[in-house]
């Protein structure tokens, strides 16, 4: 009979296909959006890391003598030992005489730190809660009601309320942005757990006696990685925006810390005369967030095509 066609696996056809599985990440890295967004982000990371070496001065240094200078003005700086140095403030100075360029460059550190920290913490907490919710049925109801409640409070308002109680500081701000993000991650992880649980291969694993925790880590959790990376990038982008908004409103990070939001907050009062205090940090901010979002889009298209249909 004609059993031969289906019988032994054709080694040649296997060889051709054998790299397919692992190369998903390589495909993602070849996506033009990921490349463009990733490159801009790498530049931003380099700026953050090399901030002291990019012709900056102490970003918190107040110089009453050279307040409110337009970009490109040459200012004379008096050093601690009494000498004077001439220096061009390419982005001008603010109303306390601080160098806007230095502040913007150092601000990169704050924004990236907030973005990365918020995304990482929210994803970590959300994944744990989501797994519990998806797997421990009797806890699910309680957890999801709490998450619904959290989601019902508009995120930025919740963050504002929390900052107002705990006093502003970098840690508080990060925490305040994390809390409203957690339910989003929980929902994502929970929905994946609930879907994957129904997959025949999970049922198959149950029927060969696989213990629950192995089931979780080997068969269920890996399915969440790609969507979580995608979600994480979007959370990071949003977190940077929220931090900027909070600082801009004067209820974020303490004003002496150079964050983009703080620079812009400082520039508000004299905006009509010196718009540069707002525009320079804004350009950096928009570029960074745009880069993360573009990268997120690219990652989603390649890693998580099912989700890309949704948004």
């Amino acid at each position: 009979m004609t059993v031969a066609t289906e019988d032994l696996v054709d080694s040649a056809s296997i060889a051709a296909a054998s790299t397919k599985r692992k190369s998903l990440w390589l495909v993602a890295l070849r996506n033009p959006f990921v490349i463009i967004g990733g490159s801009i982000l790498l530049v931003m990371l380099a700026i953050a890391a090399l901030a002291p070496f990019l012709g900056t001065i102490d970003p918190t240094r107040i110089d009453p003598a050279s307040r409110n200078k337009k970009p490109g003005t040459e200012i004379t700086m008096r050093l601690d030992d009494g000498k004077t140095v001439k220096r061009v403030a390419i982005m001008g100075t603010d109303s306390l005489g601080r160098d806007v360029y230095s502040r913007v460059i150092y601000g990169t550190r704050v924004s990236l730190a907030v973005g990365v920290a918020v995304a990482a913490i929210a994803v970590a907490i959300g994944t744990v809660i989501g797994l519990i919710s998806g797997y421990v049925r009797w806890l699910d109801g309680i957890i999801m009601r709490i998450m619904d409640g959290l989601m019902a409070i508009p995120g930025i308002l919740l963050a504002i309320a929390m900052v107002s109680i705990w006093r502003a500081g970098l840690i508080t701000v990060i925490f305040a942005i994390v809390v409203p993000d957690v339910p989003r991650v929980v929902r994502l992880v929970r929905s994946i757990v609930l879907t994957v649980r129904e997959e025949p291969y999970v049922e198959g694993a149950i029927s060969v006696g696989t213990p629950t925790w192995v089931l979780m880590f080997r068969h269920i959790l890996p399915n969440t990685i790609a969507p979580l990376i995608v979600q994480g990038t979007f959370l990071a982008a949003a977190a940077i925006l929220v931090e900027a908004a909070l600082s801009f409103l004067g209820i974020g990070i303490p004003p002496e810390i150079p964050s983009w939001g703080n620079i812009m907050a400082e520039g508000r009062t004299l905006f009509r005369v010196f718009p540069h205090n707002i525009f320079y940090p804004a350009i950096f901010l928009a570029f960074t967030v745009l880069a993360i979002n573009i990268m997120g889009d690219g990652l989603r298209d390649t890693l998580d095509p099912k989700m890309s249909k949704k948004v």
């Binding site: 812009m264 928009a286 967030v289």
Partner: peptide, 14 residues
Amino acid sequence: AVLGFSVPGFVIGY
């Protein structure tokens, strides 16, 4: 759309 997500509202306002 991507740009709209990326620029903070107050910057657009200014």
